[in-house]
């Protein structure tokens, strides 16, 4: 089956993570134009290094959930955004009762409050041309957090709610949204966690393996496509069946 896409430009937050770097060439291969977001020069350099064979077929841009006041400039510079793949996420693992009060407040403000501003701006851009598709990369931990993932899980659930309502409210104007909840992904922070857990963890995976960044990227391409537009206002779990049993 050949996938079709009604839009062209894809804004990818968290654009220097492993999934984003696997996603970008796939998007380019489908004729799309990714804009990969980074928070600093190191991130931009990493993107350019990985995507050097596709120079000129993508762009990079500054985006930081800690700087919501600067998001307007991003959308002013790129007014024709058709797709949003939102993978940015702050890193703060702690028992809820151990959390630093100031850091806790900032974490929620950035990962829920600032993300709502991102969705607001994206929605206004998309409604303006009556097409848009948003995917929030959540986590299986949203529904099944490990100890120490309370704030992470809560912020993912909060953000899923924002995307769910955006899909509900804007579908009549051609704008849809969904969440994807990957399970254990052997990439980035997931890789570190998997290494810490050792071989015991892989035995718990029904298929006997973890999910790769490339597999998540391919799923994202499908969910961005016109074929998947009726996946709206939902969050789909992609964990190899890990959460289906005990």
């Amino acid at each position: 089956m050949k996938l079709s896409f009604s839009g062209k430009t894809v804004l990818v937050t968290g654009g220097n993570c492993g999934i984003a770097l696997a996603l970008a060439p796939l998007l380019i291969g489908e004729g799309l134009f990714p804009i990969l977001c980074h928070r600093h020069g190191t991130g931009a350099a990493k993107i350019d290094e990985h995507l050097s064979p596709w120079a000129g077929q993508y762009a990079t841009a500054f985006f930081d959930l800690a700087c919501p006041e600067q998001m307007g400039a991003l959308f002013a510079d790129h007014p024709g955004i058709d797709y949003l793949v939102d993978m940015a996420q702050g890193d703060y693992e702690t028992l809820v009762a151990s959390a630093d009060p100031g850091r806790l407040a900032r974490y929620m403000a950035e990962n829920i409050g600032a993300r709502a501003e991102l969705v607001r701006l994206a929605a206004r851009a998309m409604v303006g041309h009556r097409f848009g598709r948003m995917i929030f990369v959540s986590s299986a931990a949203a529904g099944m957090p490990g100890k120490g993932q309370g704030l992470y899980s809560a912020s993912k659930l909060g953000a899923e709610g924002i995307y769910r309502s955006a899909g509900l409210e804007l579908a009549s104007r051609g704008v849809t949204a969904m969440g994807l909840r990957p399970g254990y992904v052997a990439s980035g922070r997931g890789d570190r966690f998997i290494e810490q857990q050792g071989q015991g963890l892989v035995k718990k995976m029904p298929g006997g393996c973890f999910i790769s960044a490339a597999e998540v990227a391919r799923a994202l391409v499908f969910f961005l496509s016109d074929t998947a537009r009726h996946f709206n206002g939902v969050a789909i779990t992609m964990d190899g069946g890990f959460s289906a049993g005990k």
């Binding site: 206004r124 409604v127 303006g128 409210e169 804007l170 009549s172 104007r173």
Partner: peptide, 14 residues
């Protein structure tokens, strides 16, 4: 409706 108002706001700003 609310969604119409959103479109009106966007169109007025443009």
């Amino acid at each position: 409706e609310s969604i119409d108002l959103l479109e009106v706001a966007l169109a007025l700003s443009t």
